[in-house]
Structure formats: C-alpha cells, structure tokens
Amino acid sequence: MKFVIDDWYTAHRKGEVIMEYKGEFTPELITNLLDVSESRLDEVATPSKIRKKIYNSLVEGLQNLFHHSCKVDIDKQGAVFGAALLLKVGESFKLILGNYTQSDNERFLTDRIEQINSLSKDELKQLYKMILNNKEFSEKGGGGLGMIDIARKTGSKYEYNFYPIDEDYIFFELMININ
C-alpha cells in the first residue's frame, strides 16, 4: 500500500495531544515547539521528574529530525521533512517521530536501535560515556548520542517501523514511551 504521510499522522494521533507538528524543522520552530510543550506539560501537572525526561527526549528527538530529515516531495503531497507528536495516553506519554530518509539508512538505523534496545541502563551509561569521550562528533553534532540519551533517561525500549516510499526513500517512524 502506498504510504501517505497524512494517513500515518492521523493513525498515530490518538490520546491527548500535548504537541504536534508536521513539516519542516528549523531551529526557530524547534524553540517554539519546546516552549509550547513545556507550558502544556505544566498544565497537565506531571511530576517535574517526568516533565524533565519528556522535555529532554523532545530536545533530542526534534533536533535529530532537524539534523537528519530529508526533504522529499512524494506524489505532490507537499515537501515534508518529518513529523512529531507528543501524546498523553492514560497516565503515560508517548513521543512519536517520523521522517523521510534514504533507503540506505534502514540497515544502519535498525542495527543501532536494536543495539540500544538490547542494552541495560548501566550498559547504556557505559556506551554513552565511551562515545562522549572517544569518538569525534560529526558536524551534525550528536554522534548518535541523542538516541542513547533518550533510552537511558526514559528506561524505555524504542518501537520503530520503516515504510517504503520509492527506490530511494523510506519513511522512518520512531516511538518511545515515557512514564
């Protein structure tokens, strides 16, 4: 079945919406999304400990979209880089991120997520420190630390999916529960 980002978005937009966005990610936009999320999280009166974990995951998640999304205009659906949803489902929070990327990245992303999901909290801490101290960061920053940091702080496992677009592109969906 053909992938339609609007359908994907609608299918995932369930629960109480804390923050949502679909389109191009710029530093200014991310600042706005963080502001909105922060005041909305204050309103839902979550303990500050959880609020901080959510905010932190948002910063890393949104900045990953900024650094790694690519612009694809599929079937004139509009040139969309990616999408982000922060939902409150029952008592827990769900961060859903989606972006277009080159098909070649599927293997790499799968390996990285599977690796992160397989590690304990302490192993994630060791991996984080090793990358922080030893590896050169790319110009885009991160060096893969963002995804490790989210997993480490939330203590959750990633759920993910890839949707084929065409020969060159896929849509990458990443979800994390925070509670």
Binding site: N56, L132, F137, G141, G143, L145, G146, I148
Partner: peptide, 12 residues
C-alpha cells in the same frame, strides 16, 4: 537545567 547531547561534548 538541561543540556543536549550536542552540548555534552562541548562541556567535556
């Protein structure tokens, strides 16, 4: 209060 992973290397 917060720092992102991109800052973490700079702080190091």
């Amino acid at each position: 209060e917060y720092f992102n992973t991109s800052s973490s290397k700079c702080i190091l």
